[in-house]
Write a protein that binds this DNA or RNA. Structure first.
Lengths: 190, 190, 190, 190
DNA sequence: GATGAATGAGTGTTCATTCAT
DNA sequence: CATGAATGAACACTCATTCAT
């Protein structure tokens, strides 16, 4: 028999990201994705249960790689501010180097497909950072306010600033990123 | 016949918002929207050029009403901080009272339909606030950094905190909203 | 607006019967039926809820017309034997004149589509005959045995003899039909 | 390897019968049948030319076994009535003991697959009985009428009465079966 | 012999839009 | 102005069958 070809699965991931970024989820039909990946529509169903599965799996794949990049050199013994600063720069760096992946993830997390996602699967990637913030509160360097308020100011700005749809004149330079971090830190620091 | 006209258009707006919130953009077909509005699919094409036009017009209509609410009691002579604080509370209040409209706007602004939107048409609603921020910089009460960094910290948090999809444990109470504003102001203030 | 065209529904009935007789239920796809009826596949869904509905409705339509033919000149005051004899001939006559309808009905009633049929809707057509048989038992001209044994010998032979799939050398002549009735009557008479 | 072969073929027969009875011919796809038989779809094509061949072969296999059961203790020297009576009981007995096989055979003989069947291949199983009837006519104990009329009354009732789809209140008891035979014999006897 | 991967052709169904009235 | 009928094109998905190993 023929052997299952990881190249095909990879090709389907890439085709999905490319097409969704170009024409959106709705217009990215199974047959278009298959054609882009140089596969038969039927083949797609060997590697994925259905279209939803393909879309969600692609997202998880991206998040896995994103998480790996962020956790590189992660050192919990550093001061809270330094960890957040390092992470902040790492995220911008990843986003800058993987614009296509980032755009897909953005579209996904604001689409109805999110409902199909097991949130815990993705949230676990962020756990290390959550612990850092908790430590910051205990050490009295971060304001002791509702947790979601803190994350809104320390994590969300990244996705907004990096999204050219929202901020088309902001460019990801070392200087800009550091400036933005100053504001984020001013927001949450005690 | 003027009255009848407006009623049908209004009914179509409401039906669109309701359906899109209930089943999403993808499943909200023209015929379903028409049925929800008690109108023939063909009638829809009298009031709107096509489906895209309907979707985009509905968004602009919401933004117009949102803007009106925000500009109530708008007094440019007040101190910068007070204006922003008042506006911040006004937005949360509007969102709280018009959850359906807000949800639609959120879905819209993260869908490919955004591409069809003349951004300037919506941005003009925000102009008064832009002027306030510019004044704040000149008066040296707001940091003199890239403009989009400032808006990211002073406007975006609202849509994130008010979106139960992102923050399901944050509730819009006077206290919570004020706390969040403190962080926003700390971020941008000099 | 255009007016709903009964001719289209009729054409769909005829196309369904023709195709199903020629190539069977499985191969009779919606698009083939639509093409045969000179309609768009989408049009079919204006007149019928789905394929199943089309198939079942076609059957009921046939049964209605079959029943009408059988109940012509139906006179409950005649002797039991005469009524059955008259009906027997009438059925064969109908079948002979409407071979396509009969073949469709035969295929249908031996297909999984039967499960979708509200049996009572069709059984009501046979009620008058059931009463006749009950009368025959009471008058002691028909054997007093399990009801389904009686119907098996007085009704089923028609569908078997008239079905060229089962009996290809039996032809529906007045003489043959009368002979067959003799056997049926001999079977059930006391 | 002979043994392994036969096991696979047998497994495919059984899987076909089971699936077709459960979900019908239409839904019984090659891959589902293969999975049910714990075999690759490709393997199926080693034992059968194609799907049609599998379906038809399964039917013939059932008919062969049915015929074997009927011909047990077959004694052409007995009186015509006794032979028919014995056979009649034997068929009911077989059907009662092999409901799955019977159901498959019923579905098959009312499906378009019948067209693919070489009728003579099955009819040869019935030859001994045909000779008995011919003898009955010659001996003037059976009516001298069209042959298919006779078989309609002496064989078909079995498949109707035993089919719960047609007769759901008739149960195969010794008594019921004997009663039904009385009617069959009354129909054809001179 | 035996397999799972691979596929073109097809399925039933819905879509945004237009037509005739 | 307003409509429901009508449709070609597209949808997600499954099929019987073949291929390479």
């Amino acid at each position: 028999m023929r052997i299952k070809d990881d190249k095909k699965k990879e090709a389907l991931f890439l085709a999905t990201i490319k097409l969704v970024n170009e024409i959106g989820f709705v217009s990215s039909s199974v047959s278009k994705i298959a054609k882009e990946a140089n596969v038969s529509p039927a083949t797609l169903y060997i590697y994925f249960k259905n279209k939803d599965d393909l879309i969600v799996s692609t997202y998880i794949e991206i998040k896995r790689s994103m998480s790996n990049a962020m956790l590189e050199d992660f050192d919990t013994t550093m001061p809270v501010r330094d960890i957040l600063q390092q992470t902040w720069h790492k995220i911008f760096s990843y986003v800058s180097d993987n614009r296509e992946d980032f755009r897909y993830a953005e579209q996904f997390s604001n689409s109805p497909y999110t409902d199909l996602l097991d949130k815990s699967e993705v949230q676990k990637f962020f756990e290390p950072f959550i612990h850092v913030i908790e430590r910051g509160i205990k050490e009295k360097v971060i304001k002791d306010v509702h947790f979601e308020i803190l994350t809104t100011f320390i994590f969300s700005p990244v996705t907004i600033l990096a999204n050219p749809n929202h901020c088309h004149s902001f460019s990801i330079t070392e200087q800009n990123v550091e400036t933005a971090f100053q504001l984020a830190w001013d927001a949450i620091k005690l």
